[in-house]
Design a protein around this nucleic acid. Structure first.
Lengths: 361, 361
DNA sequence: TTTTATTATGCAAACGTTTGCATAGTTTAA
DNA sequence: TTAAACTATGCAAACGTTTGCATAATAAAA
């Protein structure tokens, strides 16, 4: 033990005994180099000889040096870090997006700090304030349900922190956005119902103040109009946040109509699932009597009986795309942050809750 | 315009024009105070007069100052940040835990940085290396499936970075842990099947090398033994990671047994759901012919028909508890980091996939 | 041999904030 | 009136790393 300790100089001994962190200076003292040389050696700078680099690596192991990345980030004035503001992490869609973001960020050596707005505008503002303190190099946001104005993101813009929005994105606000084409997707879903023989198609909508639900509603209507099917407001149910119970409620209303629908396009899978269950319980056959199409391709859509025809909303890819775009903007460092909108292609996944194109008579 | 600009001094003008960040020094110059005074004013230090604090706040607004928290963290040698290593964010259980962590952390002014190990030991090691560079003040980990040795956490220990494990925790390794009592929970679940009249109870297990699944298996066996029901290895199916398809496979094997089970305890809800579906498809009535109990209380357990009796594994609370314990350890700063294990109480949620205590004859 | 490149290293400042100690000014107590 | 206490502020160092510039040492070219 004494022999082992003798290999260290007095100062290092003290550091080790006090469990102080070993710094570059300690390595410098140990090896008789200047701190700058150590720094360059650690960063594999070309001007440092191979021999020295090896010496340094050996000393790193010996003294147990780990970089103080706060100091490094401070000096380099970059965090290699991106922030996410998400309504709720527990919602499957968002957790998939976050997963995609993390995956892409990790590859590019960035790390990812998450915040939940809990769908509250106030909290979103608070978080925006926290994030503009140079804590992150860029931010990815899905707006809170409550959010109807975007001033709190201006400060970030002013400080040249790039922001990329996804899914619930601000309207009439210059910013980078990653979205799917909700209009087009809803159109596609509705058209699928039409072409599989449905004549009276209902829609369970989210809050139409929120742009994505507004677009889905529009797409639904456009498909009907295109195929000369009259719109009927009784066939549209508006919900607050498209949860399971609201789906039950809406489906029951459809069930009680004198002239019942033979197809329902739901703005998400939760309501689609509850719709299926309500109609099954009322002894309707799906898709025999009524077809149901959802939106999002949640895991449950493959499990519910019948399995649910739905739109794959590409959550994971959305996260990847958001991280990708954000990091590009961070690293561009041009004077003006460019605004770019990426629209991801969705796909209609046809399962058993709707008749397939071929099977309709 | 000129008048407005005249309110700024020359230096500030340059800063603003170049869009350089405003610092404490700029505020100091603007107001004729020392930077230290500004710093104290901003941090609401008692030694600074109210008048000065107000002046400073006014200048902050005027010049648009935001703190450089990298610098601040650097100087204070703390990040107010906790890291999470999680197998996969997209798994609902983990996203709930993360949600709980974020919630607690946010209240305590910490932020949360997430990493996915993708259930890979190598990646877990890599992340541990990244995290020990003083990037975070403490770490919360759920081990990767592959992980069978814990040396990569020793470096963290050496650098006095507290670590709290949850759910999949290391065995025979001194560390803080947040767990549920898997043994007890499985015992409870199995006993419920017994007391609702089942005589032949099967089990779908996860990988029994993983401690939580080993414990669930043990609990299952113990309940049988306690109630004098003979163990039968044919009634136990081992899976790799308890996914839906493995559940289907296992359930079919049970279905093909000459002497079929009348109750199945599944180590998670996915396999329970597939079990229900397999038996339903084979025209078994649930819970009439066979009862099924799951584990985790996933959202799907309330939707599947029949709704699934399961164990509430308290994911959100687990996250809260982990963050709580970790932050306490961070702030204790005692010389030795204490190891503490918190066992959360689970509850059996009885739904329609098993007969209730009262209804069994 | 002298000049010019080339290579390897060191010096010292800088990044923005915080903080222990010092000090000037003011009030209170003796 | 002087000492003591308190208030408000300033000075300067410190945190650990990086980096532009300078320099010493060596090798190559003239």
């Amino acid at each position: 033990m004494i022999f082992k300790l003798a290999l260290f100089n007095a100062n290092d001994c003290i550091k080790i005994m006090l469990k102080k962190r070993i710094t570059i200076k300690d390595l410098a003292r140990e090896l008789g180099y200047a701190p700058s040389t150590i720094s360059r050696a650690l960063n594999n700078h070309p001007g440092i000889s191979k021999k020295t680099k090896e010496e340094v690596q050996k000393a790193v192991k010996k003294l147990g040096y780990t970089q103080n990345s706060i100091a490094s980030n401070f000096r380099k004035n970059t965090m290699l870090s991106i922030g996410i503001i998400v309504p709720r992490i527990g919602i499957h869609f968002h957790s998939l997006v976050i997963s995609g973001i993390e995956e892409m960020a990790y590859m590019r050596k960035y790390n990812v700090t998450i915040f939940q707005s809990q769908d509250s505008l106030d909290r979103e503002k608070e978080i925006a304030k926290i994030l503009q303190t140079k804590m992150v190099d860029g931010i990815i946001v899905c707006l809170a349900l409550e959010t109807n104005n975007y001033d709190h993101f201006n400060q970030l813009k002013d400080n040249k922190v790039p922001v990329v929005f996804y899914d619930r994105v601000p309207e009439n606000y210059e910013a980078s956005k990653i979205v799917i084409n909700d209009y087009q997707s809803a159109y596609k879903a509705t058209e699928h119902l039409i072409s599989s023989g449905c004549k009276r198609i209902a829609h369970i909508s989210g809050n139409p103040e929120v742009s994505i639900y507004k677009e889905r509603l529009k797409g639904y209507k456009a498909a009907l109009v295109k195929h000369n099917i009259p719109l009927d407001e009784k066939l549209i149910e508006y919900t607050k946040d498209l949860n399971y119970d609201e789906g039950v409620y809406s489906a029951k209303k459809f069930l009680n109509l004198e002239h019942k629908p033979d197809g329902i396009f739901c703005a998400n899978d939760y309501t689609a699932v509850s719709t299926i269950q309500v109609f099954k319980k009322a002894n309707y056959s799906i898709p025999g009597d009524i077809s149901v199409v959802g939106f999002s391709n949640y895991p449950i859509s493959r499990i519910i009986e019948p399995t649910l025809t739905t739109i794959n909303d590409r959550a994971f890819e959305m996260g990847q795309a958001a991280a990708n775009l954000l990091i590009r903007q961070i690293e561009e460092k041009s004077e003006i942050i460019s605004s770019e909108t990426v629209v991801l292609e969705t796909e209609l996944i046809i399962r058993d809750s709707s008749k397939s194109f071929n099977s309709h008579k």
